[in-house]
């Protein structure tokens, strides 16, 4: 979801007989739910996969600030504006926790950011869609943050200590994000016919991309088996997606909104909602860079990084000067 299609660089999990003694000991610790810490031995492929997964996740938080930051100046009331600013600031904080977790795996912050800017690493497909109206901000909080929570709660139990600990902090804060979104939609749905239509329009546009956040169907997720074995993916894409649909449909009913899926129906036999086919060609096109906002998002990130360079350099130069003065004075 926030990390989609993470390549493990392996052909799938290794049989225990084909593992080196180090790999066997590592897998035994993972199987026993002992957390792996930065200084512990770990297979190179585990390290590389985690760097990819955590940085995709971190980039998603930071890029995710853009579609919402876009509405801070246009929030309808001062209270909504203050709340949205707090939410966007949280997203920045979440990105920082995750970058710090990735940095324990022997990569530097600058390398991670350069990877994003060079297009070597993705961020979640969802942030390549535009936020056209105020109802989009409500819908993003409700659906996008709701989907994020669904994915992140199991990751609090993942095998890598720093990642698991970052997820715990994030999950504690994320619930505010989802509720503030639902609160916006409750106001709109209780408002004028025009406001309610605005909420419906936002749901129509965000529903399918939200379902795509969980990544391709299990049958096509080539790297899932290895990631599951390493316990850096705890529930499958389809499992998470189904939970999300089951949880969200009654919420839409409460709002009096209609899901844009004619095939959506409660299935008494399975105890779950059946839902229509997802257009995976759209998902893959967005990942390839052909979503509505891919270029705009990356351009904004690169510009922020380039424009901020003199500030970073000046702060370092100032710190060096102060250190020199302190040294000569003593």
């Amino acid at each position: 979801m926030y990390a989609q299609l993470v390549d493990t660089g392996t052909g799938g999990p290794k049989d225990i007989a084909h593992m080196t003694p180090d790999e066997q000991a590592f897998q035994a610790r993972v199987d026993a739910n002992v957390k792996i810490e930065p200084t512990d031995w770990m297979p190179d492929a585990y390290r590389r996969t985690l760097v990819r997964q955590i940085q995709q996740h971190a980039h998603s938080e930071i890029v995710g600030m853009l579609p919402e930051g876009n509405w801070i100046g246009r929030a309808p009331t001062l209270a909504r504006k203050a709340i949205l600013m707090a939410k966007v600031q949280d997203e920045g904080g979440h990105g920082l926790y995750l970058y710090a977790a990735a940095e324990t795996l022997r990569v530097t912050r600058d390398q991670l950011i350069e990877d994003l800017h060079a297009g070597k690493v993705r961020y979640s497909s969802i942030f390549n869609y535009p936020t056209l109206t105020w109802a989009d901000i409500g819908t993003v909080g409700w659906l996008v943050d709701g989907a994020a929570i669904m994915n992140q709660i199991p990751l609090c139990r993942c095998s890598y200590g720093p990642y698991a600990r970052a997820m715990v902090r994030i999950c504690k804060e994320e619930s505010f994000h989802q509720r503030q979104g639902f609160d916006i939609l409750m106001s709109l749905c209780k408002g004028t016919a025009e406001q309610k239509a605005m909420a419906q329009d936002a749901l129509d546009r965000w529903w399918w991309p939200s379902l795509m956040m969980f990544g391709p169907p299990d049958a096509e997720s080539v790297h899932s088996a290895q990631s599951a074995r390493w316990k850096i993916k705890l529930l499958s894409n389809d499992e998470l997606r189904q939970r999300f649909v089951d949880q969200t449909v009654p919420q839409a009913e409460y709002l009096g909104l209609r899901m844009p899926d004619p095939d959506l129906a409660w299935n008494e036999a399975t105890g779950h909602y059946d839902f229509g086919a997802i257009d995976w060609s759209e998902f893959h096109a967005v990942l390839k860079g052909n979503g509505p906002c891919n270029q705009e998002r990356l351009r904004a990130r690169v510009k922020a990084w380039d424009d901020g360079r003199w500030v970073r350099d000046a702060a370092l130069a100032h710190a060096a000067k102060q250190a020199r003065r302190a040294a000569t004075a003593s």
Partner: peptide, 10 residues
């Protein structure tokens, strides 16, 4: 988050 601190890039 503690652990193997990596040499910062320039």
């Amino acid at each position: 988050m503690s652990g193997a601190a990596t040499e910062a890039t320039a």
